[in-house]
Simulated assay, not measured.
Amino acid sequence: MHKFGFIGLGIMGSAMAKNLLKAGCQVTVWNRSPEKTEDLVALGATRAETPAAVAASCPITFAMLADPAAAEEVCFGRHGILEGIGDGRGYVDMSTVDPATSQKIGFAVVAKGGRFLEAPVSGSKKPAEDGTLIILAAGDRTLYDEALPGLEAMGKKILHLGDVGKGAEMKIVVNMVMGGMMAAFCEGLALGGKAGLATADILDVIAAGAIASPMFALKGGLIAQGIFTPAFPLKHMQKDLRLAIGLGDRLGQPLAAAAATNELFKGGRAAGYGDEDFSALYKLID
């Protein structure tokens, strides 16, 4: 039986940890808000008191945290991962962070005698629940091979992209594109509505053509009903756009469309929609 730790039980992490349990794995969990561990414990998980305790007791620990600041706090903070890692145990950070943060965490883990893999995911709440995430791993290849049974319980497509940083870069690129798609989609629905076109007809035409996508099909119907329950919170999309623009700055790559999209999502946060789904951008535009 495989034994894994799991740190971070938000919208994504709780679903991912449940899939590890469903796959028959032993799972030790920790979350900053302890009450979020209760569902997992009821399903058979063991609760640890600190991230260090998770890392010390499990051959491989996964983490799914909100942003670079949270990822650094869990690693470097008091009773953090670095206090428990060592003896070749593995740390797999599945959070979406910038490449520099991922490399900083990876270097520190290795310096303590552990092994490190970054493995950000493409997909939101439903794929996390269904175990159909796309997992973008990079780093220690032996750890990748050993973590694969756990990764396969959480994802449908798992890639190893090379050295630490490449997984983070891939995730940032993918989410930058997704944010731009959502912004254009919301503007199209709003413009069509002002012109007197039925939303159902707009969605029907989009679905029949070259720009059809699962995201438009899923989010279009929810937007039409005014449902913005968070599968991927708007504040997290804005964070990912900010990371993309930062990557563009470092590489000298102009990102005019992404910069404009980032300003739209910043407006969504300012309007109070940060904790709603990223499709709540429509409320700002309409």
Rank of each mutant, 00 (worst) to 15 (best):
L9Y: 02
D275Q: 14
A69C: 08
L43V: 02
V54N: 07
M12A: 11
H2M: 14
D87M: 12
V205S: 10
G188P: 10
K194C: 06
Q103L: 04
N31S: 12
G268V: 08
C75Y: 10
L189P: 11
A271G: 14
G150T: 06
P230G: 04
V205C: 08
R115T: 00
T101D: 01
D87L: 12
G86Q: 06
F76A: 09
A56E: 09
V27P: 07
S122K: 01
V174T: 14
E263L: 15
I85G: 09
E83M: 13
L222M: 12
G114E: 00
M181I: 14
L136H: 02
L43D: 03
D140S: 05
V74Q: 11
A108W: 04
G155Y: 04
V54Y: 05
I245M: 11
D39V: 13
K219P: 01
A108T: 03
E152G: 05
A257P: 03
W30T: 06
A207T: 12
V173L: 15
H2C: 10
H2I: 05
V121N: 02
I206C: 10
R141P: 02
I134E: 05
S124F: 03
G167E: 00
G193I: 08
G80H: 09
G209Y: 10
P120I: 03
F228I: 03
G106V: 01
D275W: 08
L243E: 01
A52P: 05
A271M: 10
N262Y: 13
L247K: 09
A153M: 08
A153K: 03
A15C: 10
P149E: 07
S33G: 06
R47Y: 03
F232Q: 00
L161A: 07
G162V: 09
R115G: 01
R32A: 09
A256G: 11
A183K: 12
G10N: 03
A195Q: 13
S95H: 07
T37N: 11
F107W: 01
A48V: 07
A42R: 14
G131V: 04
T199F: 12
L281N: 08
I223G: 05
A210H: 12
A137I: 01
M237S: 05
F232L: 08
D87S: 15
H79C: 12
G196N: 04
L191F: 15
G246M: 06
M170K: 06
P127M: 08
A17D: 00
G248P: 09
M170R: 05
P68A: 05
P120E: 02
V97K: 05
E146F: 06
G8K: 00
A69T: 14
D140N: 12
T132P: 01
E187A: 10
L255D: 00
A210K: 14
T61F: 05
L151W: 04
V27L: 08
